[in-house]
């Protein structure tokens, strides 16, 4: 464990807490893409299959449970909770994310570290996470104005993977045979997708103005 990875995990946890706060405090999920939440739930379920078979550390196990539990709770909330689901931007959240799932699964079958079921699913979860934010970014551009908590949620979600890239660079130089090229390339793509959001987020922070994404 290094400071980049720990900070990255805490940033990821913070993004989930901000999202839970928004949904709980405002009883609304306006501006949040249900499709991105479903993709993230799938990412965690596919990646953390080794939760009970491969114990790494208490921290690792606890965080996996928190990520799986929170992502499923958010999807449940947005689908079932009568107050919350009323505020869901159904007509804006129309990105066909099933294509993302199919494409990432095909890619995982072709490009993986070992052609074994757990490894293919792990690669699938890495590729899927890289593109899982697309429905959310599309929704933000369509919905124009972004409320503070939603903006912070997306910012933290993008920042955590950028910190993981620093973690991979650090591990590459400090561990003899460290190679995570699949996660690295996918992580770079994932972070690059946030580039324009980061730019407008920075502008809104610098000008102390409302976060506006050009539609």
């Amino acid at each position: 464990m290094n400071v980049f990875r720990l900070t990255g995990d805490m940033t990821h946890l913070a993004s989930i807490l901000v999202l839970l706060l928004k949904i709980y405090a405002t009883k609304s999920c306006s501006g949040i893409s249900l499709k991105t939440q479903e993709l993230y739930a799938l990412v965690f379920l596919a990646r953390y299959l080794n939760l009970f078979t491969d114990f790494i550390s208490v921290y690792n196990t606890v965080m996996k449970l928190v990520f799986i539990g929170s992502s499923l709770a958010i999807v449940w909330c947005m689908r079932m909770h009568k107050m919350v689901k009323r505020s869901y931007d159904q007509e804006l959240d129309t990105f066909r994310h099933y294509f993302l799932i199919a494409g990432c699964f095909l890619l995982a079958l072709l490009v993986n570290e070992k052609f074994m079921f757990p490894e293919v699913l792990w690669a699938f979860s890495i590729y899927l996470e890289a593109v899982s934010t697309i429905p959310q970014l599309v929704l933000l551009q369509r919905s124009g104005n972004v409320d503070n908590l939603t903006g912070q949620y997306v910012f933290l979600l993008g920042a955590y993977r950028a910190l993981y890239i620093l973690n991979w660079i650090y591990r590459y130089f400090t561990e003899p045979h460290f190679s995570r090229w699949i996660a690295c390339v996918a992580g770079l793509v994932q972070t690059a997708l946030y580039a324009d959001f980061f730019y407008y987020y920075f502008l809104s922070w610098k000008n102390n103005a409302k976060l506006q994404l050009p539609s």
Binding site: D9, N50, I56, W122, N167, F178
Partner: peptide, 10 residues
């Protein structure tokens, strides 16, 4: 699996 191959990251 060898330490480095295990997926020890979240």
């Amino acid at each position: 699996a060898e330490e480095s191959e295990r997926h020890d990251e979240l």
